[in-house]
Design a protein around this nucleic acid. Structure first.
Length: 271
DNA sequence: ATGCGGACCTGTTAGC
DNA sequence: TGCTAACAGGTCCGCA
């Protein structure tokens, strides 16, 4: 489900409902996510107030005075604030129940998501410590990306999807950004010119910013925290359009697999 | 160090 | 209609 725009849309949607609220209970119906939810989570969280709801990459951070909850939505995770009395559905694995009888409900059919706890700075946590820069900050620059790509033989698409290079660029937006930049997704990262990295960096920033503004991309099951879908899908130019005409030149878009992910591009416009 | 494939899990859809 | 295979928005890990 979520790439960075979807995660940020989720974060900003749930934050006002959580900030300043005290946790009354934690109900765990399914502990086996990507990693088991720690047995200590409930003990740590109950009685704490949520100070803030942050984000680093695709991780959502629940700050309390005792520590931080670290949430990841994986491929199919959804977070919503609902009435605590609403009966849980099949894949509603966790409820973080607040004192106002609302709860933060984690739904995740495929269970690739995670809910962890850390008592110390979450940015130092093993999973977050080595993440690349946020794409919408100045740290994600042409110079940075170009330097990191030198000598790399990995396909440019896999390179920009590596969260240790830059966070938040998932399969949808990687396809879109490479199309807009005219770069063939299979081209070796180290063989992309600096001028084209300039274009790529600008396009990644522009596409992610536009997607966030429109509430993310709803393909099938993504829903914003208010249950409504995002509206970015209408603007996708290549993702999900294999075989259909290129919006620029009209040639049929090609589809291949790169690192087990579907990759769509125009063989004429992207080199 | 880098790059690749496998693994985790369920649900939906395409194809026979 | 029913079964099977392929695929889906992520990313860690182990191996070469």
């Amino acid at each position: 489900m979520p790439e960075l725009p979807e995660v940020e849309t989720t974060r900003s949607g749930i934050a006002p409902h959580l900030q300043g609220q005290r946790v009354d209970n934690v109900i765990i119906r399914q502990r086996q996510l990507r990693w088991p939810i720690p047995a200590s989570l409930k003990r740590h969280l109950v009685g704490q107030s949520i100070v803030s709801v942050g984000r680093r990459g695709k991780y959502i951070l629940l700050e309390t005075l005792a520590g931080w909850g670290i949430l990841h939505l994986g491929m199919s995770g959804i977070l919503r604030v609902v009435d605590a009395s609403l009966p849980p559905a099949k894949h509603d694995h966790v409820d973080i129940v607040l004192c106002n009888d609302q709860c933060l409900r984690l739904t995740d059919p495929r269970r690739f998501g995670a809910l962890l706890w850390t008592k110390t700075d979450p940015l130092e946590h093993k999973l977050l410590a080595n993440l690349g820069p946020e794409p919408l900050t100045a740290a994600f620059s042409t110079d940075y990306l170009y330097q990191r790509a030198q000598g790399r033989k990995q396909a440019i698409k896999a390179f920009i999807m590596d969260s240790h290079v830059v966070v938040g660029v998932g399969n949808i937006y990687a396809n879109e950004a490479l199309f807009k930049s005219g770069i063939h997704p299979h081209r070796a990262a180290g063989k992309v010119s600096k001028a084209r990295f300039e274009s790529l960096v600008q396009n990644i920033k522009a596409i992610l910013a536009a997607a966030i503004k429109q509430g993310g991309t709803t393909l099938k099951d993504f829903r914003k925290a208010d249950g409504k879908p995002g509206y970015f899908k209408q603007q996708l130019q290549v993702y999900g359009r294999g075989g259909e005409p290129c919006v620029t030149c009209g040639n049929p878009l090609k589809e291949s697999r790169l690192g087990q992910r579907s990759t769509v591009y125009c063989g004429a416009c992207q080199r």
